[in-house]
Amino acid sequence: MHIPAAFIRFRFRQAGKFVKEIPLPYLVLLLGILAAAGMAGYSFVESRTGGAAVGGGMLLLLLSIHLKRKDFHFIRLAEASPWTVFCADYWLLSCPVMALEAVRGQWAVALALLLGCVGVSLIRQPYWRRAKGFPVPRLIPAEAFEVRTGLRRDGWVLLAFYAGAFVGLLLPYASFAMLWVYTAALSGCFRDGEPVAVLCSRELPAGRFIGRKLGVNLRLFALSVVPVCLLYVAIRPGDWWLALFFFVMAILNVALFILMKYALYRPGGKITSGQISLFLSMAGMLLPFLAPVTLFLLVRYAVMARQQLTPHLYVYN
């Protein structure tokens, strides 16, 4: 196997640039959350089952990354072998988990993860030239095109997480963990800026446009999450406050995805910044002391979204 040294150096430079661009307070918070996750992981992988669960989760994450990659042609243009680059990327990403497994004596899981990375890398690319994609139900209105297109792209993954939320009703808190992943996966639907022609098609001023967008998408999201929350409360009535908190935080986070899309709007462009803010806000669903961060970001991005859209929609004021 040829080692793609140039790509590995490039990944380190990318990682360095990413870290340098994070504002210090966010970096401290991020490190705190990562340290907490590391400690939780350390105690979790003590048992073989825990180790296998963490390893399996990591492999699933790598698989979802692999299925969404679009750099196959770029790597070919750089005259490198795509699967070796993929493999090196996945080894780098799963390094901390493999180290954790090895330190706790889970050698078999660490080895399986190592081989799993090779397996994932060998899955045929590219995927994105599909003509149909996941079937989207007609009940989702055309106006919610972000959800429609997101479902078409990641439908099976979203469906698996959503079904997992129902299966998780059998265990305490498991449903919320799956709903958290489901909500996080939904953020991917709001990462692309639509063309100006679509933005202007409803002929609404910026404020009303944002209001309508929030209304349509939050209604859809609430319709999908409410059944899980209600069933959870029916099974465990004592935890009604937890279901309510989770539901409210999930709604606020989806609102944040939408506001962020328009706050950082570029016609036809992909939104690449704001990932740390999103991560912190999503962490607020699991760590209640971070909830004020979500509220602060909501207000900040609402103001920014209005300002960003006004030059395109001012004629409808």
């Binding site: 429609r148 692309d192 100006v196 022609a197 679509v198 098609s201 004629v315």
Partner: peptide
Amino acid sequence: LLRREVSYLEAENYFYPYMTGREYLELFP
């Protein structure tokens, strides 16, 4: 002249990823 009286086909056309042609047209009243 009001923008409401004008339709504009831009020189470069881009579309939302994973959107079908029908969905795109349905967005325009």
